[in-house]
Nucleic acid binder design. Sequence first.
DNA 1: GTCTATATACAGATAGAC
DNA 2: GTCTATCTGTATATAGAC
Lengths: 208, 208
Amino acid sequence: MIKTIRSKSEQKRQKVLEAAIELFVVQGFHNASMDQIALRAGVSKQTVYSHFSSKQELFKNAIQTRRSDYELSDASRLDDSAPPRESLLIMAQALLGLLLSDDGIRANRVCCAEAESHPEVAEVFFKEGPEHITNLLTHYLQRQVDSGRLSIANPRHGAIQFLYMVKGEAQMRALLNQKPWDSSEVSAYLNSCVEMFLKAYGVVAETC
Amino acid sequence: MIKTIRSKSEQKRQKVLEAAIELFVVQGFHNASMDQIALRAGVSKQTVYSHFSSKQELFKNAIQTRRSDYELSDASRLDDSAPPRESLLIMAQALLGLLLSDDGIRANRVCCAEAESHPEVAEVFFKEGPEHITNLLTHYLQRQVDSGRLSIANPRHGAIQFLYMVKGEAQMRALLNQKPWDSSEVSAYLNSCVEMFLKAYGVVAETC
DNA sequence: GTCTATATACAGATAGAC
DNA sequence: GTCTATCTGTATATAGAC
């Protein structure tokens, strides 16, 4: 009995969170109103306030709930046994796909825009997003160095170089709403990044 | 006589623009109010509206007026005669300094945040900012290729790789209000970028 | 052209019935 | 807990005196 009541309330809380996520991510913090959120969630505004004490609190919870969406769907994409050329290209493509999705771009925008007024939100985004990916790639590169396939003095620097090179202009264009590259240009650029990375960090036997 | 009147009006217009720039850049579009802008400009709100028909119009004019601030102060930093190692490092340091300044970060945030509602603003930012720098570096790299100092199949790709590698994590941290690297780490990372770039694109005689 | 004062709208947040 | 109805502040934008 009590359980049913709690679960019904919990359902509404979830509805509110979902509505808040969509509206905050699409419209930003200031443009999304509590009225809209309540309307979309199918509850009254007071119900929203009974679950979240303020708009700030709701924003924090909503964005942080999204954290799992930032992760690459399959961490095992960085296959240790495949040639680095292959593993790196596959992860670059997956990463770019994630970053250029509508939700990815909008989440990035809103987290940057609110970084000063909501530092906790920006921190979660940074740690679960860029920093997490950097760690994955750093460890992968370290293993490749250990097994003699790559030669990198500072694998963390190498990982950062590769990741931001890959994001590069494509993400900047998307963030600024500019005409995107066509897919053939993206593909050529990504290949060029992998080749360049291996030329610099590959062991001689493999690259020359 | 008429000239005096016009110039006085023009002065106020300038005051309004300056106030708008500061407030929009620091607080974003929605948080900066027309009251604040009028107050800071030392004019009445109606005077603001007599010069700019709406808040949107004022925003557009204000941000676009800032365009000159995005440029590197001295385009000749890319010295053709110096060794690429040196020219590239100097430009990387200058670029990062510009991008990590408070105003640089805030302008970036607000232009991304408003990219959908104010596409003209985002376009100006993109063309005068990232695209302009990319062009400068592309032409520099092309000249170095022509003179046989570098070997790059696609200089534009090379320029993009270098620039976004350099911006990398430092800018992301700043945008998301995270703890910045200390200057020794920045310095080490930039050196690592230049070395890596030359390892991949330098002519053999210079790098091996 | 510039000011003071105001119209109008809508935001976040709350009160009180059920 | 949930709803309808409302309070209160503040935003953009305008009207009218000088």
